[in-house]
Simulated scan of single mutants.
Amino acid sequence: MSNVRQLREKTPDSEKITINLGYVDLGRIDLLVQEGFYSNRSDLIRTAIRNQLESHVEVVSKSLERHTMELGLRDYSVADLEALKAAGEVLHVKVVGLARIASDVTPQLALDTIGSITVLGALQASADVKKALADRIK
């Protein structure tokens, strides 16, 4: 018997991506890190991405309004989906950020209540729910 127990599953607060850079750009990044402007390569890349996103904040806001998308974190629980089902409504998920479908949502409940999923960012759901909704995920 082990006296180590998991209190709760840790949900990542970021998504890992991979990029390819030319040698010259990589060398310039390394030079800025070496000179102390950034703590590491990732720090510079995150800062550059945030600066670019900030420079386009108005465009992003208008696009969110046009597409009626939610920005940030959106959770969908069993209770949320059961309420939709009881009301005879179908959900069209549109999120920029992170959309999470609770781990206790069954594939059948998801099929009965979710008409489409568009996520610009990341979708977290059980493998079974993702498989059931595969043709509805854009």
Score class of each variant (00 low, 15 high):
M1I: 01
S2V: 06
S2E: 03
S2N: 02
S2H: 08
R5P: 04
R8K: 06
D13K: 14
S14F: 04
S14I: 07
K16W: 14
I17H: 07
I17G: 00
I17A: 05
I19W: 04
N20V: 09
L21M: 12
G22Y: 02
G22L: 03
Y23Q: 15
V24I: 08
D25H: 09
D25A: 12
L26R: 13
G27N: 15
L31F: 09
L31M: 11
L31H: 07
L32Q: 12
L32A: 05
Q34G: 10
Q34F: 09
E35N: 12
G36P: 03
G36M: 08
Y38C: 05
Y38I: 06
S39V: 09
N40E: 07
R41K: 07
S42L: 06
D43S: 01
I45F: 11
R46V: 14
T47P: 02
A48I: 00
I49E: 03
Q52E: 13
L53K: 04
L53H: 06
L53C: 10
L53R: 11
L53M: 11
E54I: 13
S55E: 11
S55L: 03
H56Y: 05
E58K: 14
V59K: 13
V60E: 14
V60W: 12
S61I: 13
S61Y: 01
S61E: 15
K62Q: 15
K62I: 05
T68S: 08
M69H: 10
M69P: 02
E70F: 11
E70Q: 15
G72A: 07
G72F: 10
L73W: 15
R74C: 09
D75M: 15
D75Y: 09
Y76D: 01
Y76R: 00
D80G: 04
L81G: 02
A83M: 04
A83G: 02
L84K: 00
L84R: 15
K85I: 00
A86D: 07
A87M: 01
G88T: 04
G88F: 04
E89Y: 01
E89D: 11
L91I: 03
H92A: 11
H92Q: 08
V95R: 00
V95Q: 00
V95A: 06
V96N: 12
L98K: 13
A99W: 01
R100I: 09
R100G: 08
R100V: 09
R100T: 06
A102C: 04
S103E: 14
S103D: 08
D104A: 08
D104M: 03
V105L: 04
V105R: 11
T106V: 02
T106K: 05
T106M: 06
P107N: 04
Q108F: 03
L109D: 09
D112N: 13
D112Y: 03
G115R: 00
S116G: 13
S116V: 03
I117G: 05
T118G: 15
T118M: 15
V119C: 14
L120K: 06
G121E: 00
A122L: 07
A122R: 14
L123S: 02
Q124Y: 14
Q124K: 13
A125R: 06
S126V: 00
S126K: 00
S126A: 01
A127L: 10
D128Y: 08
D128K: 11
V129G: 03
V129C: 08
K131T: 12
K131I: 02
K131F: 10
L133P: 03
D135N: 05
R136G: 02
K138S: 10
K138Q: 12
K138H: 14
